[in-house]
Structures are given as C-alpha cells and as structure tokens.
C-alpha cells in the first residue's frame, strides 16, 4: 500500500512538472525576446516606433504602424472567411455527413493541415492573385473603387489565410461537438425543435469552449503565418484604406528583412517580434476574460 501511495505522489509530481514545461518555455521566449527587443525600442523611441508611419531602415526610420494595421486587417479578413465556413463545415462533418463519405472527407481535412505554407503561397500567387486582379478591375470599371489594385492585396491574403485556418477550426470544433452527450440533441429533438435549431441552440452552446479554442488556435495561425502571406500580400510598408491594395504584416516584416539586417535594423525587427508577442498576449487575455464572463452566466 505504501509503495502505491508513493507512486501516486511521484506521478502527480511528474504531471505537475510536465505542466510547468509550457510556462518555462514562454518564460524563456519572453526573456529572449524582450532582452533583444527593448534596447532597440528605447533607442528608436517607443512612441515613434509604434506610431511611425514610415519604415525606411536604410534611412534610420523605423515606424511599424503600417505593419500593425496590416496584421489586423489580414487576420480580421481570415476570420471573416475562415471561421463561419470552418464552423459550418464542422457542423456538416459532425451532424450531416453520410457515413459512406465521412472517412475520405475527414482524411481530406487532415490533409489540408499538412500542406506546407509555401504551396499555399504559390497557389495564391498563380490562381487567386489573377482572380482578385480581374475582380478589382471589374470594380474599377464600374466605378465602385478608385484604384483597382494589382491582385497582391489584403483580400487575397485574407482568402488564402481563411483556407489555411480551416483544418485547425474544423478539427477542434468537430471533436468538441462530438463530445456533447447525445441525449442533449435527442432531448431537443423530442421537444419538437428542428435538427438545425437543436444543433445551433443546444449542441454548439454546449461545445462552446472547444469552439472558442478552435477559433483562438485559428487566429494564432493567421497572425503567425508568414511564408504564404509574404508571397501574396504585396508587402508595401504603408497604410492603405482599400482591401484591394497590398500591405505588410508584422511577421512579414520580420521574415523579409531578417536575412540581411544588421545592427539596429536587426534589433528593430526583433522589437517587431516583441510587438507581435504583446499582441498575442492581449488577444489571449481578452479571450480568457470573455470566457470567464461567459462561464459565469
């Protein structure tokens, strides 16, 4: 009996240590990022760095406002395209999909997750960019927009990113929906609700935490994606008001210029990483707060 209790305690310790790994990892990344980024920020001037509209490292001008706005635009776009389609597709997978075609479809969504981003990039460049360009020209000719853009745009990047976050959202949402006990659904049907009403009023609310987790993971992937985005978004480091125009994202800024950057320029890029990191912290905190609010309902 005694040895058994000892193993129990020992394993509990092991589980605890494992749980600490993620905390340790974040702490290490934090230390590394801040130690390398903060000096550059103070040298450039924090306010100037965050609100500066011009990024010309060769002329010692480091303003990342366009990139901040760019990341926001592109991520929002990806959410608009990816989240509804992702959730509705997982509803299909969990509730509608006939057994005969379920397996191949499921395998297909998993495959979507394994396609490297470079492929998405080239696909976007060769297929989506020309489509968006002709779309822009059509709008321009009918006088809806002032500038047709050239296809490498916020809209293109949003579409491709929307595609890229689909498997993450579908995977998590579907398994969360399947985890909802069957009697919830049956009960709702027995009360006379239609299938759709039961799904959207009973199952999805019950699977809420999984659905939110999927969306958060998707947002994380959208903000963090670089290799595909830099091929199709144009990467102009300036502000724009049109989704048919190109823009540069925070991650794009790092990847594009890290290769050749030295000195203050390199540090400014790491500082860009710090801003990105703080961004993600803010998102996570607000989601955590939102969730807590929802749990108390």
């Amino acid at each position: 009996m005694k040895s058994k209790a000892w193993t129990e305690r020992f394993m509990q310790g092991v589980f605890f240590v494992a749980a600490c790994a993620s905390v340790l990892a974040v702490a290490l990344i934090c230390i590394f990022l801040f130690a390398n980024g903060i000096p550059a920020m103070s040298e450039i001037g924090f306010i100037e760095f965050i609100t500066g509209k011009e990024w010309r490292p060769g002329s010692e001008m480091f303003g990342i406002l366009p990139m901040i706005v760019g990341s926001l635009y592109v991520t929002a776009g990806a959410i608009i395209f990816g989240v509804p389609i992702g959730i509705l597709t997982s509803v299909f997978m969990a509730m509608y999909c006939p057994k005969q075609i379920y397996k191949p479809l499921k395998a297909a969504t998993e495959l979507l997750a394994g396609i490297p981003s470079v492929i998405y990039g080239f696909f976007g460049l060769v297929v989506v960019v020309p489509l968006i360009r002709s779309f822009g020209e059509t709008l321009y000719r009918s006088g809806i927009v002032k500038n047709p853009g050239n296809g490498n745009s916020i809209l293109t990047a949003s579409l491709i990113l929307g595609m890229m976050i689909l498997p993450t959202i579908i995977g998590t949402t579907e398994s969360a929906m399947r985890a909802v006990p069957a009697h919830y659904y049956e009960g709702s049907l027995a009360l006379g609700a239609t299938k759709e009403r039961s799904i959207f009023r009973v199952i999805i609310p019950a699977a809420k935490s999984g659905v939110i987790a999927g969306i958060v993971l998707g947002i994380g992937r959208a903000i963090g994606e670089t290799m595909a985005v830099i091929m199709i978004v144009g990467n102009q480091a300036r502000l724009t008001g049109s989704i048919l125009q190109g823009i540069r994202t925070l991650t794009g800024n790092i990847v594009i210029e890290m290769g050749y950057a030295t000195g203050l320029h390199r540090e400014a890029l790491i500082a860009t990483g710090v801003v990105l990191f703080v961004f993600i912290l803010i998102i996570n905190f607000s989601v955590a707060l939102l969730k807590r609010g929802a749990d108390h309902e």
């Binding site: 460049l125 490498n152 830099i230 102009q236 480091a237 300036r238 594009i256």
Partner: peptide, 18 residues
C-alpha cells in the same frame, strides 16, 4: 513605398510573369 516587396526570386519572377 507603393512598391511590392518580396524576399524571394521565384516570387518576383512569378509575379512579373502573371
């Protein structure tokens, strides 16, 4: 600043060819 930027030769070529 309106110039598109890429860090990749083949992206440059594909963009120009498209």
């Amino acid at each position: 600043l309106d110039a598109q930027v890429t860090n990749n030769t083949s992206v440059m070529m594909t963009t120009v060819s498209e």
